[in-house]
Design a protein around this nucleic acid. Structure first.
Lengths: 332, 332
DNA sequence: CTGAAAGCGCTTACAG
DNA sequence: CTGAAAGCGCTTACAG
């Protein structure tokens, strides 16, 4: 890509062979004599030759690039998901391009188009809820797509994720088992996230008739968690437990409870969703639902590459999450 | 890039002009009659034509892509930095590719090479401390580079960042003004981060002779912050204040202090560095040094594009940070 | 096992 | 204002 960059022709000249032969060596073709291969390799090394990805992309119509758009980057499990995807793709000889949607459909659509423009041959998206126009464009162009962080066999594209509904049901049952009958639920924008909607549904359908759920919607942030907790504690009777549908929201709840001078978890049980890096470390240590982020990320990356390489259909996968009981929840 | 994708030739045929003319229209050249331009635009739209970035890159030797490698993605200011860089580049018609180094020189080198392989024409790196071989490779290829998050006029490449030394000095003086004479400093791996070293130097050179600094090194995480605090509180006399050289470390300190039943900030003052999104919300609200991340990110992106477009030399910039005094620090 | 030639989808002198 | 032709750096039939 640079003036000083050597081309395949320089190598050919240096090794006294044709560019065809150089190309074959660079691509590990068998049909080259060991001696010739040696010569070419030596010449390539001597000239610091790196094949032009651009030229290769133009002729092969392959970029070996996959795109992923995530709702958030900070204070979320998405950064570890990206890390795992990148690692897996890298092992498979692929590149990753990423974009952030802030959980907004329009931003996601713009981001996805941008990633496509950057050469993404396949896309990994969060959730199953997307702009219809985007989906149809992807369909027309025949772009492999995987929906992650969700499990939905009826979705337009294969989902590789986990069962938000079932996990939320586990959460509410844990709280009920401890005797909680009035629970505040702090969650992000439900109209913009099917994962959130699924969790809410799991809570609602998983709870017993004697349990009351109070919902507070806000952003996915500690600030929103604190605010939701404040509003929840103004109710009477006060809820005895709060569940944040993301750990960062639960963290805000802890902050607010501390600020109000409550003793945790005696005065208020708090649960999260994610199991972020600091969740075990916070005070009290956070009871939460661990999501199978890394396994999911790896599986998604592998599946999309398999699809790209051998046109193998993508098999939907539902990974298990797990309840991690720590110190932030106690009997009501 | 796809079978169904139209090429410039299809458009030319549809509009009854040459590919040269289509190219000119797509590039907004003046030398096209309005009527012809109209015809071409109509044809392009009708065929859903999108020029192949790959082909354009091959012939122009320009990818309009810049790469940035950051030490971390989660629990850090780097995600907002990336967001701002991406936005700026996007406004300027450029693309962003990113990679994470985990603050390790070797990973950074690998990442940088990967970004270059992906077509990055310029690189934004954190700090001024990098693999010599990488730097020389960048020099040979004449790749524009900017070092961020640091200020160092003697660096091999222009720095667009802030004065970690000066900011740390402000921090220690704030604590001293409150009467603290024994201060625990919790920081990340100093051998891997010149930014950390600068901050430590600022603390050491900024403090008065009567103040004692106790250093505890660990990862950049809440867990490490908690562990460092634990060890610090085993000392006698106990430090009356702790400063985490990142907010996430300070958060760990808060967790640990809470766990030990301390009353904050009366029993222990805690300060951070970053001003993350939740720093104002935590309990007690965190006194910290706000870093000019967004301004810095925008300036870096603009500078590297200017360099790429007009070969304008990159002017180093030092942005101001600021001390934000909140509730986590009190008189000793 | 090796190479000459065509072609991927564009841009850019050059000529008119 | 418009177009024919060469060429960017590779790969891939095809021929030998």
């Amino acid at each position: 890509m640079n003036v000083t960059d050597k081309t395949i022709r320089h190598v050919a000249r240096e090794a006294n062979v044709s560019v065809t032969t150089v190309s074959r060596v660079m691509n590990g073709s068998e049909k080259v004599s060991p001696a010739t291969r040696e010569k070419v390799l030596k010449a390539a090394e001597k000239l610091h030759f790196t094949p032009s990805r651009t030229a290769i992309a133009l002729v092969t119509k392959r970029t070996r690039t996959v795109g992923v758009v995530v709702p958030y980057l900070d204070n979320s499990i998405f950064s570890s998901m990206i890390h795992e995807i990148e690692q897996t793709l890298s092992e498979l000889g692929y590149f990753l391009v990423i974009a952030v949607s802030n959980n907004r459909i329009e931003e996601e659509t713009k981001s996805a188009d941008r990633l496509l423009a950057m050469g993404a041959e396949g896309l990994i998206l969060s959730g199953a809820d997307h702009d219809a126009a985007l989906l149809s464009r992807l369909g027309v162009r025949n772009i492999p797509v995987i929906f992650t962080s969700i499990w939905n066999e009826a979705a337009e594209y294969p989902t590789i994720g986990y069962d938000n509904f079932g996990l939320a049901r586990i959460a509410v049952r844990h709280l009920e088992k401890l005797g909680h009958r009035s629970i505040a639920v702090l969650h992000g924008p439900s109209d913009r996230s099917d994962r959130t909607r699924e969790r809410i549904r799991g809570l609602v359908e998983g709870k017993s008739d004697r349990t009351t759920l109070l919902f507070f919607e806000g952003e996915v942030s500690a600030e929103a968690g604190a605010r939701g907790t404040r509003r929840a504690l103004e109710r009477s009777p006060k809820p005895t437990a709060v569940i944040g549908l993301s750990d960062i929201i639960a963290l805000g709840a802890i902050f607010e409870a501390n600020r109000q001078g409550l003793t945790l978890p005696a005065d208020l049980s708090i649960m999260g969703f994610d199991n972020l890096e600091w969740s075990e470390e916070c005070c009290p240590r956070l009871t939460t639902l661990e999501l199978p982020t890394r396994r999911m990320a790896r599986a998604a990356a592998e599946a999309i590459v398999a699809k790209l390489e051998t046109d193998q259909p993508i098999a939907p996968i539902c990974f298990d999450g797990s309840l991690i009981i720590r110190e932030s929840t106690a009997p009501a």
